[in-house]
Design a protein around this nucleic acid. Structure first.
Lengths: 219, 219
DNA sequence: ATTATGTTCAATTAATTACTTGAATAGTTA
DNA sequence: TAACTATTCAAGTAATTAATTGAACATAAT
Protein backbone atom coordinates (compact mmCIF):
# COMPACT_ATOMS: atom_id res chain seq x y z
CA UNK A 1 0.00 0.00 0.00
CA UNK A 2 1.27 3.41 -0.90
CA UNK A 3 2.65 5.74 1.72
CA UNK A 4 -0.11 8.23 0.97
CA UNK A 5 -2.94 5.77 1.19
CA UNK A 6 -1.73 4.38 4.48
CA UNK A 7 -1.36 7.81 5.98
CA UNK A 8 -4.64 9.27 4.79
CA UNK A 9 -6.70 6.45 6.26
CA UNK A 10 -4.78 6.78 9.51
CA UNK A 11 -5.86 10.41 9.55
CA UNK A 12 -9.51 9.55 8.95
CA UNK A 13 -9.22 6.98 11.72
CA UNK A 14 -8.27 9.78 14.14
CA UNK A 15 -11.78 11.17 13.69
CA UNK A 16 -13.21 7.70 14.33
CA UNK A 17 -11.08 7.37 17.46
CA UNK A 18 -12.42 10.64 18.79
CA UNK A 19 -15.94 9.30 18.29
CA UNK A 20 -15.19 5.88 19.77
CA UNK A 21 -16.01 6.68 23.38
CA UNK A 22 -19.50 7.14 24.82
CA UNK A 23 -18.46 9.84 27.24
CA UNK A 24 -16.90 11.89 24.48
CA UNK A 25 -20.03 11.57 22.35
CA UNK A 26 -22.14 12.70 25.23
CA UNK A 27 -19.85 15.66 25.76
CA UNK A 28 -20.14 16.56 22.10
CA UNK A 29 -23.92 16.55 22.39
CA UNK A 30 -23.76 18.89 25.39
CA UNK A 31 -21.35 21.18 23.56
CA UNK A 32 -23.57 21.21 20.49
CA UNK A 33 -26.27 22.93 22.59
CA UNK A 34 -23.96 25.69 23.79
CA UNK A 35 -20.39 26.30 24.91
CA UNK A 36 -19.41 25.15 28.41
CA UNK A 37 -16.51 25.44 30.80
CA UNK A 38 -14.60 22.28 31.66
CA UNK A 39 -16.06 22.25 35.14
CA UNK A 40 -19.65 22.62 33.97
CA UNK A 41 -19.23 19.96 31.34
CA UNK A 42 -17.69 17.61 33.91
CA UNK A 43 -20.70 18.17 36.15
CA UNK A 44 -23.38 17.52 33.52
CA UNK A 45 -21.48 14.56 32.09
CA UNK A 46 -20.86 13.06 35.53
CA UNK A 47 -17.09 12.82 35.06
CA UNK A 48 -14.11 14.08 37.03
CA UNK A 49 -12.68 17.40 35.91
CA UNK A 50 -9.31 15.92 34.99
CA UNK A 51 -10.92 13.17 32.96
CA UNK A 52 -13.19 15.67 31.21
CA UNK A 53 -10.22 17.88 30.42
CA UNK A 54 -8.36 14.97 28.87
CA UNK A 55 -11.33 13.98 26.72
CA UNK A 56 -11.70 17.57 25.59
CA UNK A 57 -8.09 17.68 24.55
CA UNK A 58 -8.55 14.59 22.46
CA UNK A 59 -11.53 16.18 20.75
CA UNK A 60 -9.58 19.38 20.21
CA UNK A 61 -6.59 17.56 18.76
CA UNK A 62 -8.73 16.36 15.86
CA UNK A 63 -10.51 19.68 15.52
CA UNK A 64 -13.98 18.60 16.63
CA UNK A 65 -14.07 21.22 19.38
CA UNK A 66 -12.32 24.52 19.93
CA UNK A 67 -11.63 26.41 23.13
CA UNK A 68 -11.40 29.99 24.38
CA UNK A 69 -10.00 31.08 27.69
CA UNK A 70 -11.97 33.79 29.48
CA UNK A 71 -10.66 34.71 32.90
CA UNK A 72 -10.03 31.57 34.90
CA UNK A 73 -12.21 29.37 32.77
CA UNK A 74 -11.69 27.64 29.45
CA UNK A 75 -14.84 27.40 27.33
CA UNK A 76 -15.23 24.65 24.77
CA UNK A 77 -17.63 24.46 21.82
CA UNK A 78 -18.08 22.26 18.76
CA UNK A 79 -15.94 23.77 16.10
CA UNK A 80 -18.43 23.76 13.24
CA UNK A 81 -21.73 22.51 11.88
CA UNK A 82 -20.19 19.59 10.07
CA UNK A 83 -19.37 18.05 13.44
CA UNK A 84 -23.10 18.08 14.20
CA UNK A 85 -23.76 16.55 10.81
CA UNK A 86 -21.23 13.81 11.45
CA UNK A 87 -22.89 12.96 14.74
CA UNK A 88 -26.27 12.97 13.07
CA UNK A 89 -25.21 10.52 10.36
CA UNK A 90 -23.49 8.31 12.92
CA UNK A 91 -26.72 8.23 14.96
CA UNK A 92 -28.60 7.35 11.83
CA UNK A 93 -26.28 4.47 10.98
CA UNK A 94 -26.44 3.22 14.57
CA UNK A 95 -30.22 3.33 14.48
CA UNK A 96 -30.40 1.44 11.19
CA UNK A 97 -27.79 -1.20 11.95
CA UNK A 98 -27.58 -1.80 15.67
CA UNK A 99 -30.44 -3.82 17.06
CA UNK A 100 -29.46 -2.67 20.55
CA UNK A 101 -30.34 0.93 19.69
CA UNK A 102 -33.81 -0.04 18.56
CA UNK A 103 -34.21 -2.03 21.73
CA UNK A 104 -33.14 0.87 23.94
CA UNK A 105 -35.43 3.27 22.10
CA UNK A 106 -38.38 0.93 22.40
CA UNK A 107 -37.73 0.33 26.07
CA UNK A 108 -37.15 3.89 27.20
CA UNK A 109 -38.61 6.25 24.62
CA UNK A 110 -42.00 4.80 23.87
CA UNK A 111 -44.64 7.36 23.10
CA UNK A 112 -48.17 6.01 23.26
CA UNK A 113 -49.73 5.42 19.83
CA UNK A 114 -46.53 5.95 17.87
CA UNK A 115 -46.70 9.04 15.72
CA UNK A 116 -44.08 9.81 13.11
CA UNK A 117 -41.81 12.64 14.25
CA UNK A 118 -42.02 15.87 12.27
CA UNK A 119 -39.30 16.59 9.77
CA UNK A 120 -37.50 19.92 9.92
CA UNK A 121 -38.80 21.20 6.60
CA UNK A 122 -42.36 20.36 7.56
CA UNK A 123 -42.08 22.11 10.91
CA UNK A 124 -40.57 25.18 9.28
CA UNK A 125 -43.59 25.50 7.01
CA UNK A 126 -46.10 25.11 9.81
CA UNK A 127 -44.22 27.64 11.92
CA UNK A 128 -44.34 30.16 9.08
CA UNK A 129 -48.08 29.61 8.73
CA UNK A 130 -48.55 29.99 12.50
CA UNK A 131 -50.14 26.56 12.71
CA UNK A 132 -48.11 25.19 15.62
CA UNK A 133 -46.87 26.03 19.07
CA UNK A 134 -43.23 25.00 19.31
CA UNK A 135 -41.85 24.18 22.75
CA UNK A 136 -38.18 23.80 23.64
CA UNK A 137 -37.93 21.36 26.52
CA UNK A 138 -34.25 21.91 27.28
CA UNK A 139 -32.88 23.67 30.38
CA UNK A 140 -33.19 27.46 30.28
CA UNK A 141 -29.48 28.13 29.66
CA UNK A 142 -29.47 25.96 26.57
CA UNK A 143 -32.60 27.66 25.26
CA UNK A 144 -31.01 31.05 25.94
CA UNK A 145 -27.98 30.19 23.82
CA UNK A 146 -30.18 29.60 20.77
CA UNK A 147 -33.55 28.11 19.88
CA UNK A 148 -36.08 27.71 17.08
CA UNK A 149 -37.82 30.94 16.04
CA UNK A 150 -40.80 31.58 18.28
CA UNK A 151 -40.22 28.51 20.43
CA UNK A 152 -41.32 28.72 24.07
CA UNK A 153 -38.97 27.31 26.66
CA UNK A 154 -40.60 24.83 29.03
CA UNK A 155 -37.99 22.82 30.92
CA UNK A 156 -39.22 19.31 31.77
CA UNK A 157 -40.01 19.93 35.43
CA UNK A 158 -42.11 22.99 34.60
CA UNK A 159 -44.35 21.40 32.00
CA UNK A 160 -46.95 20.08 34.45
CA UNK A 161 -47.72 23.48 35.98
CA UNK A 162 -47.71 25.33 32.67
CA UNK A 163 -50.13 23.06 30.84
CA UNK A 164 -53.14 25.37 31.23
CA UNK A 165 -51.20 28.24 29.67
CA UNK A 166 -50.89 26.32 26.40
CA UNK A 167 -53.40 26.79 23.58
CA UNK A 168 -55.41 23.55 23.63
CA UNK A 169 -56.68 24.20 20.12
CA UNK A 170 -53.29 24.28 18.44
CA UNK A 171 -50.91 21.47 17.64
CA UNK A 172 -47.79 21.40 19.81
CA UNK A 173 -44.36 20.34 18.60
CA UNK A 174 -41.64 19.61 21.14
CA UNK A 175 -37.90 19.38 20.56
CA UNK A 176 -34.81 19.12 22.73
CA UNK A 177 -31.15 18.20 22.34
CA UNK A 178 -31.30 15.61 19.61
CA UNK A 179 -33.03 12.61 18.14
CA UNK A 180 -32.56 10.48 21.24
CA UNK A 181 -33.10 13.02 23.98
CA UNK A 182 -35.67 11.80 26.49
CA UNK A 183 -37.08 15.26 27.28
CA UNK A 184 -39.10 15.66 24.12
CA UNK A 185 -40.41 12.10 24.29
CA UNK A 186 -41.60 12.64 27.85
CA UNK A 187 -43.11 16.00 27.00
CA UNK A 188 -45.11 14.60 24.09
CA UNK A 189 -46.39 11.74 26.19
CA UNK A 190 -47.37 14.08 29.01
CA UNK A 191 -49.10 16.49 26.63
CA UNK A 192 -51.07 13.72 24.95
CA UNK A 193 -52.19 12.39 28.30
CA UNK A 194 -53.71 15.80 28.92
CA UNK A 195 -55.55 15.82 25.61
CA UNK A 196 -53.18 17.97 23.58
CA UNK A 197 -52.29 17.17 20.01
CA UNK A 198 -48.52 16.89 20.33
CA UNK A 199 -45.59 15.52 18.38
CA UNK A 200 -41.79 15.60 18.29
CA UNK A 201 -39.38 17.21 15.90
CA UNK A 202 -37.24 14.50 14.27
CA UNK A 203 -34.12 15.73 16.03
CA UNK A 204 -32.86 18.62 18.14
CA UNK A 205 -31.66 22.17 18.09
CA UNK A 206 -28.09 21.48 16.91
CA UNK A 207 -29.31 19.65 13.81
CA UNK A 208 -31.82 22.43 13.04
CA UNK A 209 -29.12 25.06 13.30
CA UNK A 210 -26.60 22.93 11.42
CA UNK A 211 -29.00 22.48 8.53
CA UNK A 212 -29.09 26.25 8.11
CA UNK A 213 -32.58 26.95 9.44
CA UNK A 214 -33.12 30.26 11.26
CA UNK A 215 -32.24 30.49 14.92
CA UNK A 216 -33.32 32.90 17.63
CA UNK A 217 -31.25 34.13 20.58
CA UNK A 218 -32.55 35.29 23.94
CA UNK A 219 -32.06 39.00 24.63
CA UNK B 1 -26.65 10.18 34.08
CA UNK B 2 -29.66 8.10 33.28
CA UNK B 3 -29.33 4.44 32.42
CA UNK B 4 -30.73 5.07 28.96
CA UNK B 5 -28.49 7.97 28.14
CA UNK B 6 -25.39 6.12 29.21
CA UNK B 7 -26.30 3.09 27.16
CA UNK B 8 -27.33 4.87 24.00
CA UNK B 9 -24.07 6.80 23.75
CA UNK B 10 -22.17 3.58 24.34
CA UNK B 11 -24.01 2.15 21.35
CA UNK B 12 -23.15 5.11 19.14
CA UNK B 13 -19.56 4.75 20.29
CA UNK B 14 -19.51 1.22 18.87
CA UNK B 15 -19.88 2.75 15.41
CA UNK B 16 -17.04 5.14 16.21
CA UNK B 17 -14.87 2.25 17.39
CA UNK B 18 -15.45 0.42 14.13
CA UNK B 19 -14.25 3.53 12.30
CA UNK B 20 -11.28 4.11 14.58
CA UNK B 21 -8.77 2.01 12.68
CA UNK B 22 -7.11 2.95 9.40
CA UNK B 23 -7.03 -0.59 8.09
CA UNK B 24 -10.75 -1.02 8.68
CA UNK B 25 -11.50 2.24 6.90
CA UNK B 26 -9.41 1.15 3.96
CA UNK B 27 -11.26 -2.16 3.89
CA UNK B 28 -14.58 -0.34 3.92
CA UNK B 29 -13.49 1.70 0.91
CA UNK B 30 -12.56 -1.46 -0.97
CA UNK B 31 -15.86 -3.07 -0.05
CA UNK B 32 -17.77 0.02 -1.15
CA UNK B 33 -16.52 -0.61 -4.70
CA UNK B 34 -17.72 -4.20 -4.78
CA UNK B 35 -18.01 -7.30 -2.61
CA UNK B 36 -14.85 -9.28 -1.90
CA UNK B 37 -13.80 -12.54 -0.32
CA UNK B 38 -11.72 -12.41 2.85
CA UNK B 39 -8.66 -13.55 1.00
CA UNK B 40 -8.98 -11.02 -1.77
CA UNK B 41 -9.56 -8.22 0.68
CA UNK B 42 -6.55 -9.31 2.71
CA UNK B 43 -4.45 -9.19 -0.44
CA UNK B 44 -5.50 -5.71 -1.59
CA UNK B 45 -5.32 -4.33 1.94
CA UNK B 46 -1.93 -5.87 2.58
CA UNK B 47 -2.99 -7.64 5.76
CA UNK B 48 -2.87 -11.24 6.94
CA UNK B 49 -6.01 -13.28 6.33
CA UNK B 50 -6.63 -13.89 10.03
CA UNK B 51 -6.25 -10.21 10.81
CA UNK B 52 -8.55 -9.26 7.95
CA UNK B 53 -11.13 -11.77 9.12
CA UNK B 54 -11.08 -10.30 12.60
CA UNK B 55 -11.48 -6.75 11.34
CA UNK B 56 -14.38 -7.87 9.17
CA UNK B 57 -16.09 -9.41 12.14
CA UNK B 58 -15.79 -6.20 14.06
CA UNK B 59 -17.38 -4.35 11.16
CA UNK B 60 -20.12 -6.94 10.91
CA UNK B 61 -20.88 -6.83 14.62
CA UNK B 62 -21.93 -3.21 14.26
CA UNK B 63 -23.73 -3.81 11.00
CA UNK B 64 -21.43 -1.84 8.70
CA UNK B 65 -20.79 -4.87 6.49
CA UNK B 66 -22.69 -8.07 5.81
CA UNK B 67 -21.47 -11.40 4.54
CA UNK B 68 -22.64 -14.27 2.37
CA UNK B 69 -21.02 -17.65 2.13
CA UNK B 70 -20.77 -19.07 -1.38
CA UNK B 71 -18.92 -22.37 -1.63
CA UNK B 72 -15.71 -22.18 0.31
CA UNK B 73 -15.55 -18.41 0.35
CA UNK B 74 -17.24 -15.78 2.44
CA UNK B 75 -18.02 -12.58 0.58
CA UNK B 76 -18.34 -9.28 2.40
CA UNK B 77 -19.97 -6.04 1.28
CA UNK B 78 -20.96 -2.74 2.88
CA UNK B 79 -24.42 -3.27 4.22
CA UNK B 80 -26.07 -0.12 2.91
CA UNK B 81 -25.65 3.30 1.37
CA UNK B 82 -25.71 5.09 4.67
CA UNK B 83 -22.36 3.49 5.49
CA UNK B 84 -20.94 5.20 2.41
CA UNK B 85 -22.56 8.44 3.51
CA UNK B 86 -21.02 8.11 6.96
CA UNK B 87 -17.57 7.62 5.46
CA UNK B 88 -18.13 10.59 3.18
CA UNK B 89 -19.04 12.91 6.05
CA UNK B 90 -16.14 11.64 8.13
CA UNK B 91 -13.78 12.36 5.24
CA UNK B 92 -15.27 15.79 4.94
CA UNK B 93 -14.78 16.55 8.64
CA UNK B 94 -11.22 15.22 8.48
CA UNK B 95 -10.48 17.42 5.49
CA UNK B 96 -11.91 20.53 7.18
CA UNK B 97 -10.38 20.03 10.60
CA UNK B 98 -7.17 18.05 10.33
CA UNK B 99 -4.26 20.03 8.99
CA UNK B 100 -2.45 16.76 8.31
CA UNK B 101 -5.01 15.76 5.69
CA UNK B 102 -4.53 18.99 3.81
CA UNK B 103 -0.80 18.49 3.98
CA UNK B 104 -1.02 14.94 2.63
CA UNK B 105 -3.34 16.02 -0.17
CA UNK B 106 -1.06 18.88 -1.14
CA UNK B 107 2.00 16.67 -1.09
CA UNK B 108 0.66 13.67 -2.97
CA UNK B 109 -2.39 14.73 -4.95
CA UNK B 110 -1.36 17.98 -6.56
CA UNK B 111 -2.84 18.52 -9.97
CA UNK B 112 -1.14 21.25 -11.96
CA UNK B 113 -3.13 24.52 -12.11
CA UNK B 114 -5.68 23.50 -9.50
CA UNK B 115 -9.12 23.14 -10.98
CA UNK B 116 -12.21 22.69 -8.84
CA UNK B 117 -13.49 19.13 -8.98
CA UNK B 118 -16.87 18.61 -10.62
CA UNK B 119 -19.86 18.11 -8.38
CA UNK B 120 -22.08 15.10 -8.98
CA UNK B 121 -25.13 17.11 -10.05
CA UNK B 122 -23.07 19.09 -12.53
CA UNK B 123 -21.54 15.97 -14.06
CA UNK B 124 -24.97 14.34 -14.33
CA UNK B 125 -26.24 17.26 -16.40
CA UNK B 126 -23.25 17.30 -18.71
CA UNK B 127 -23.51 13.54 -19.19
CA UNK B 128 -27.18 13.89 -20.16
CA UNK B 129 -26.27 16.58 -22.67
CA UNK B 130 -23.47 14.45 -24.08
CA UNK B 131 -20.92 17.15 -23.33
CA UNK B 132 -18.31 15.01 -21.59
CA UNK B 133 -16.39 11.78 -21.83
CA UNK B 134 -16.44 10.08 -18.45
CA UNK B 135 -13.59 7.71 -17.64
CA UNK B 136 -13.51 5.26 -14.75
CA UNK B 137 -9.90 4.76 -13.72
CA UNK B 138 -10.44 1.85 -11.35
CA UNK B 139 -9.38 -1.75 -11.96
CA UNK B 140 -11.59 -3.63 -14.41
CA UNK B 141 -13.33 -5.81 -11.79
CA UNK B 142 -14.48 -2.78 -9.84
CA UNK B 143 -15.77 -1.14 -12.99
CA UNK B 144 -17.58 -4.33 -13.91
CA UNK B 145 -19.42 -4.37 -10.58
CA UNK B 146 -20.95 -0.97 -11.29
CA UNK B 147 -20.00 2.36 -12.86
CA UNK B 148 -21.40 5.71 -13.99
CA UNK B 149 -23.70 5.53 -17.03
CA UNK B 150 -21.65 5.58 -20.21
CA UNK B 151 -18.32 5.70 -18.42
CA UNK B 152 -15.35 4.09 -20.17
CA UNK B 153 -13.04 1.96 -18.06
CA UNK B 154 -9.37 2.90 -18.37
CA UNK B 155 -7.30 1.40 -15.56
CA UNK B 156 -4.30 3.59 -14.64
CA UNK B 157 -1.65 1.54 -16.39
CA UNK B 158 -3.59 1.56 -19.68
CA UNK B 159 -4.20 5.29 -19.91
CA UNK B 160 -0.93 6.10 -21.70
CA UNK B 161 -1.54 3.74 -24.64
CA UNK B 162 -5.21 4.66 -24.99
CA UNK B 163 -4.74 8.41 -25.15
CA UNK B 164 -5.12 8.66 -28.94
CA UNK B 165 -8.46 6.85 -28.79
CA UNK B 166 -9.94 9.66 -26.72
CA UNK B 167 -11.84 12.53 -28.33
CA UNK B 168 -9.45 15.48 -28.03
CA UNK B 169 -12.27 17.93 -28.63
CA UNK B 170 -14.41 16.89 -25.69
CA UNK B 171 -13.95 17.52 -21.99
CA UNK B 172 -12.91 14.46 -20.01
CA UNK B 173 -14.01 13.76 -16.44
CA UNK B 174 -12.24 11.09 -14.43
CA UNK B 175 -13.39 9.38 -11.26
CA UNK B 176 -12.27 6.43 -9.16
CA UNK B 177 -12.84 5.04 -5.68
CA UNK B 178 -13.43 8.17 -3.69
CA UNK B 179 -12.43 11.73 -2.95
CA UNK B 180 -8.87 10.81 -2.00
CA UNK B 181 -8.10 8.11 -4.49
CA UNK B 182 -4.85 8.80 -6.33
CA UNK B 183 -5.93 7.25 -9.62
CA UNK B 184 -8.19 10.06 -10.77
CA UNK B 185 -5.65 12.71 -9.74
CA UNK B 186 -2.94 11.01 -11.73
CA UNK B 187 -5.22 10.52 -14.70
CA UNK B 188 -6.21 14.18 -14.83
CA UNK B 189 -2.61 15.29 -14.59
CA UNK B 190 -1.55 12.90 -17.32
CA UNK B 191 -4.44 13.96 -19.58
CA UNK B 192 -3.69 17.64 -19.13
CA UNK B 193 -0.04 17.07 -19.94
CA UNK B 194 -1.21 15.68 -23.27
CA UNK B 195 -3.38 18.69 -23.99
CA UNK B 196 -6.75 17.33 -22.99
CA UNK B 197 -9.27 19.33 -21.05
CA UNK B 198 -9.71 17.10 -18.04
CA UNK B 199 -11.09 17.31 -14.52
CA UNK B 200 -12.06 15.10 -11.61
CA UNK B 201 -15.42 14.20 -10.13
CA UNK B 202 -15.59 15.41 -6.52
CA UNK B 203 -15.65 11.88 -5.18
CA UNK B 204 -15.97 8.28 -6.35
CA UNK B 205 -18.36 5.62 -7.52
CA UNK B 206 -19.70 4.61 -4.07
CA UNK B 207 -20.77 8.16 -3.28
CA UNK B 208 -22.40 8.53 -6.70
CA UNK B 209 -24.36 5.35 -6.19
CA UNK B 210 -25.15 6.17 -2.59
CA UNK B 211 -26.59 9.53 -3.58
CA UNK B 212 -29.09 7.71 -5.77
CA UNK B 213 -27.69 8.58 -9.19
CA UNK B 214 -28.07 5.98 -11.95
CA UNK B 215 -25.57 3.18 -12.17
CA UNK B 216 -24.62 0.86 -15.02
CA UNK B 217 -23.51 -2.76 -14.77
CA UNK B 218 -21.27 -4.62 -17.17
CA UNK B 219 -22.98 -7.39 -19.12
C1' DA C 1 2.62 39.05 48.18
C1' DT C 2 -0.68 35.49 49.40
C1' DT C 3 -4.55 32.75 48.69
C1' DA C 4 -8.09 30.70 45.96
C1' DT C 5 -9.92 28.86 41.63
C1' DG C 6 -10.10 26.43 37.19
C1' DT C 7 -7.50 23.79 34.18
C1' DT C 8 -3.83 20.95 32.68
C1' DC C 9 -0.03 17.76 33.34
C1' DA C 10 2.28 13.45 34.88
C1' DA C 11 2.37 9.01 36.82
C1' DT C 12 -0.14 4.84 37.65
C1' DT C 13 -3.45 1.05 36.95
C1' DA C 14 -6.76 -1.88 34.72
C1' DA C 15 -8.89 -2.80 30.51
C1' DT C 16 -8.91 -2.96 25.59
C1' DT C 17 -6.88 -3.27 20.95
C1' DA C 18 -4.09 -4.84 16.85
C1' DC C 19 -1.64 -8.27 15.32
C1' DT C 20 0.75 -12.88 15.07
C1' DT C 21 0.83 -17.75 15.28
C1' DG C 22 -0.99 -22.17 15.00
C1' DA C 23 -5.04 -25.05 15.54
C1' DA C 24 -9.99 -25.97 14.47
C1' DT C 25 -13.94 -25.90 11.39
C1' DA C 26 -16.77 -26.12 7.26
C1' DG C 27 -17.21 -27.03 2.66
C1' DT C 28 -15.14 -28.86 -1.79
C1' DT C 29 -12.59 -31.92 -4.69
C1' DA C 30 -10.11 -36.11 -5.73
C1' DT D 1 -12.81 -41.58 2.68
C1' DA D 2 -9.01 -38.53 2.44
C1' DA D 3 -6.82 -34.35 1.08
C1' DC D 4 -7.39 -29.56 0.20
C1' DT D 5 -8.98 -24.75 0.70
C1' DA D 6 -10.98 -20.61 2.82
C1' DT D 7 -12.28 -18.88 6.94
C1' DT D 8 -12.65 -18.56 11.82
C1' DC D 9 -11.15 -19.39 16.51
C1' DA D 10 -8.01 -19.21 20.52
C1' DA D 11 -3.98 -17.93 22.87
C1' DG D 12 -0.35 -14.76 23.53
C1' DT D 13 2.19 -10.20 23.13
C1' DA D 14 3.01 -5.39 22.65
C1' DA D 15 0.78 -1.09 22.39
C1' DT D 16 -2.97 1.94 23.42
C1' DT D 17 -6.85 3.72 26.16
C1' DA D 18 -9.87 5.38 30.10
C1' DA D 19 -9.79 6.70 34.44
C1' DT D 20 -7.72 8.02 39.09
C1' DT D 21 -4.71 10.65 41.90
C1' DG D 22 -2.03 14.39 43.22
C1' DA D 23 1.05 17.98 41.65
C1' DA D 24 1.81 22.02 38.67
C1' DC D 25 0.37 26.01 36.31
C1' DA D 26 -2.06 30.22 35.16
C1' DT D 27 -5.23 33.78 36.41
C1' DA D 28 -8.00 36.40 39.60
C1' DA D 29 -9.25 38.07 44.15
C1' DT D 30 -7.81 39.51 48.80
Amino acid sequence: MSEFKHNIFEQFARIGKALSNGNRLQMLEFLAQRERSVEELARVAGLSVANTSQHLQQLRQVGLVSSVKRGLQVFYRVSSDDVVELMRVMRCVAENHLAEVGHLVNTFLTVKDELEPLRREELMQRVEQGLVTVIDVRPAEEYAAGHLPGAVNIPPQELEQRLQLLDAGQEIVAYCRGAHCVYSYNAVQQLREHGFSASRLEDGFPEWKGAGYPVELSA
